[in-house]
């Protein structure tokens, strides 16, 4: 058994429909790309193991559907996420504009304990299209937005070419790692029989 425990990270991928969330995940997990568009229904789940330094991580990747009709799934899906990946298409302005909505919706629904410092990561996808000539969101603009939201790490990717995909996911694991809570002692209560049998003696609780 490993001396340090393996960590499981729950990663949620969000973004407008058609920006390439599923393709990014497929490229990352299966090293495959298909030009054919297939809308995700609800969510897809994939697992990938990564090693950083000498630590082993399991990424549990939640590839969600971008269509609005699936938004109601939010609370159920976002709970307990370790990291949230926001994806937009550099060739579609609307998908960039919507990043803010996605981020806020996530924070609202997942209600993490420290929303200011919740690890997000932003991916500008499809930089390969038309040799970059059709792009409408500049890197500068994207980076400025990321900086304004608490320095969210930013990557420009191409799921098709496999550009930066590995590096982006590596960063996701690193970020989640930084957020790892300190391990505390698990200490449930003991019982006080003299004081009536089933009442708590002290309520130190579990200190996690």
């Amino acid at each position: 058994m490993a001396s340090r425990r393996r960590m499981l990270l729950k990663v949620i991928i969000l973004g407008d429909s058609g920006v390439g969330k599923t393709s990014l995940m497929n490229q990352y997990v299966n090293k495959k790309f298909s030009n054919q568009y297939k809308a995700t229904i609800g969510a897809d789940f994939l697992t990938k193991e990564v090693q950083i330094d000498d630590r082993l991580f399991t990424l549990q990747i939640w590839d969600t559907a971008g269509q609005e009709r699936f938004q109601s799934l939010g609370v159920a899906f976002y709970r307990g996420a370790d990291c949230c990946v926001l994806v937009y298409d550099v060739n579609v302005m609307k998908s960039f504009d919507n990043l803010n909505n996605w981020r806020e919706e996530f924070l609202l629904q997942a209600s993490p304990s420290d929303p200011e410092n919740f690890p997000f990561i932003v991916l500008g996808n499809k930089i390969d299209i038309d040799g970059g000539n059709s792009r409408v969101v500049s890197e500068k603009k994207a980076k400025a937005w990321c900086a304004s939201k608490g320095n969210i790490p930013y990557f420009e990717t191409s799921a098709k070419e496999g550009l930066n995909v590995e590096a982006a996911f590596q960063c996701i694991a690193m970020n989640a790692l930084k957020n790892e809570p300190e391990e505390d002692i698990y200490l449930p209560d003991t019982i006080d029989v003299a004081g009536g049998g089933r009442q708590l003696q002290r309520s130190s609780g579990c200190e996690c």
């Binding site: 393996r6 994939l46 697992t47 549990q60 159920a76 709970r79």
Partner: peptide
């Protein structure tokens, strides 16, 4: 209830992370 596996009778819990996520969903 966030979909993280805790125990599986068969198989490695971490490898079943995707399956576990499906159940939670």
């Amino acid at each position: 209830n966030s979909g993280k596996p805790i125990y599986s009778r068969y198989g490695d819990e971490h490898k079943l992370a995707g399956f576990s996520a499906t159940l939670q969903a």
